[in-house]
Computed example of a mutant assay.
Amino acid sequence: MIFLGTIVNALLIVFGTLLGRFLKNIPERMKETVMYGIGLAVTVMGIQMSFQSEQFLIAIISIVIGAIIGEMIDLEGMLNNLGIWIESKVKTKKSDGGIAQGFVTATLIFVIGSMAIIGAIDSGVRNDHGVLITKGIIDGFTSIILSATLGIGVLLSAIPVTIYQGLITLFSTQISQFIPEAALNFFIKEMTGTGGMMIIAIGLNMIGLTKIRVANLIPGIVVVAVIVTILYNFDMVAMPSE
């Protein structure tokens, strides 16, 4: 079953979120301190991810162009409206944490990074689910903490995780056949570096230092793919080391 790793990953996110909801009644002062602690941890994680980039100019250009596209289509507004609609359906209290915030924050943390791509390809090509199951355990523990502070919206991140990793798994054979390994490694590094900058923004928002509309930066990931494709096909840059 090639989708086993993705299914386990999604279920662990759901389980972790539900478990974290039992912690929602901790004192407000404690919840605030925990939120700051998570924000610091997320910021450090983003910094580590950003250093994966070996062509930092790609990350800068991708963030800038992605931000322009995101602001033009108002992706953040779309997600907030979706969150408001879901809240109206499930009767979630506003004070319990916006669904959109939890959804966007968790999705970026769980999707951006090399483990999602490498693990999904391993599942599809070699039927080896070890990487995705390991990622699922990490995501599960992370979702416990996130849901305790950001609310039930964290649970919804299991949907894009399933779709994203599932599609990579489904087309993993074609990906490995038609995309050269060097180009794929190049994209993973630059995507992780660019995503790391978005993760830093999430962490700073959680601490309360900034109010960056992180969702409007998401199109930058697509821009990374375009830039990497152009550079690789025209042999305009040396491929990064393994």
Rank of each mutant, 00 (worst) to 15 (best):
residue 185 N to L: 06
residue 33 T to R: 08
residue 157 S to K: 00
residue 20 G to C: 15
residue 147 S to E: 02
residue 32 E to Y: 07
residue 158 A to V: 09
residue 67 A to Y: 09
residue 62 S to C: 13
residue 21 R to D: 08
residue 103 F to R: 07
residue 220 G to T: 12
residue 47 I to N: 03
residue 233 N to L: 15
residue 164 Y to H: 06
residue 230 I to G: 05
residue 139 D to H: 14
residue 65 I to G: 05
residue 81 N to M: 09
residue 205 N to K: 01
residue 240 P to N: 03
residue 146 L to G: 15
residue 85 W to F: 14
residue 232 Y to Q: 08
residue 222 V to Y: 07
residue 81 N to Q: 10
residue 205 N to Y: 00
residue 121 I to D: 14
residue 36 Y to L: 15
residue 67 A to L: 12
residue 55 Q to H: 14
residue 104 V to K: 00
residue 33 T to P: 03
residue 1 M to R: 06
residue 235 D to M: 10
residue 106 A to R: 01
residue 94 K to E: 02
residue 210 T to A: 02
residue 25 N to H: 05
residue 228 V to Q: 00
residue 21 R to L: 12
residue 214 V to G: 04
residue 29 R to D: 07
residue 214 V to F: 00
residue 81 N to V: 08
residue 117 I to T: 02
residue 231 L to S: 09
residue 233 N to E: 10
residue 118 I to G: 01
residue 32 E to V: 07
residue 197 M to D: 02
residue 149 T to K: 09
residue 209 L to H: 04
residue 179 I to T: 07
residue 12 L to I: 07
residue 16 G to T: 09
residue 228 V to E: 00
residue 239 M to D: 13
residue 180 P to G: 03
residue 185 N to V: 07
residue 14 V to K: 01
residue 217 L to R: 06
residue 85 W to S: 13
residue 218 I to A: 03
residue 180 P to C: 03
residue 77 G to I: 14
residue 49 M to N: 11
residue 153 G to A: 10
residue 84 I to R: 13
residue 167 L to C: 10
residue 197 M to W: 09
residue 56 F to S: 08
residue 80 N to D: 04
residue 169 T to K: 03
residue 200 I to L: 14
residue 78 M to T: 14
residue 204 L to F: 13
residue 115 M to N: 02
residue 83 G to A: 04
residue 45 M to R: 06
residue 74 D to R: 14
residue 217 L to D: 06
residue 79 L to I: 06
residue 17 T to N: 01
residue 136 G to T: 09
residue 238 A to V: 15
residue 102 G to F: 04
residue 223 V to K: 06
residue 192 T to K: 04
residue 45 M to P: 10
residue 160 P to T: 02
residue 165 Q to K: 09
residue 177 Q to F: 02
residue 236 M to R: 03
residue 241 S to R: 15
residue 175 I to T: 12
residue 83 G to V: 04
residue 53 S to N: 07
residue 110 F to P: 15
residue 66 G to P: 11
residue 187 F to V: 13
residue 129 H to E: 13
residue 59 A to M: 04
residue 118 I to L: 04
residue 115 M to I: 07
residue 233 N to C: 11
residue 50 S to L: 07
residue 226 V to Y: 02
residue 136 G to W: 03
residue 175 I to F: 09
residue 99 I to Q: 04
residue 128 D to V: 11
residue 41 A to V: 13
residue 80 N to S: 02
residue 184 L to P: 11
residue 149 T to A: 14
residue 56 F to L: 11
residue 171 F to R: 01
residue 223 V to M: 06
residue 233 N to T: 12
residue 210 T to Q: 00
residue 30 M to H: 11
residue 158 A to C: 11
residue 135 K to W: 08
residue 84 I to C: 05
residue 114 S to E: 01
residue 62 S to N: 12
residue 194 T to Q: 06
residue 66 G to N: 02
residue 19 L to D: 00
residue 130 G to N: 04
residue 224 V to Y: 00
residue 183 A to Q: 05
residue 2 I to E: 00
residue 45 M to Q: 05
residue 135 K to A: 15
residue 93 K to S: 12
residue 175 I to R: 05
residue 30 M to D: 08
residue 97 G to W: 10
residue 73 I to Y: 04
residue 192 T to A: 09
residue 24 K to E: 13
residue 226 V to F: 06
residue 72 M to V: 09
residue 173 T to E: 10
residue 201 A to D: 00
residue 156 L to V: 14
residue 14 V to Q: 01
residue 218 I to L: 04
residue 28 E to S: 13
residue 163 I to N: 09
residue 12 L to E: 02
residue 212 I to L: 12
residue 12 L to D: 03
residue 88 S to L: 12
residue 138 I to H: 03
residue 2 I to Y: 01
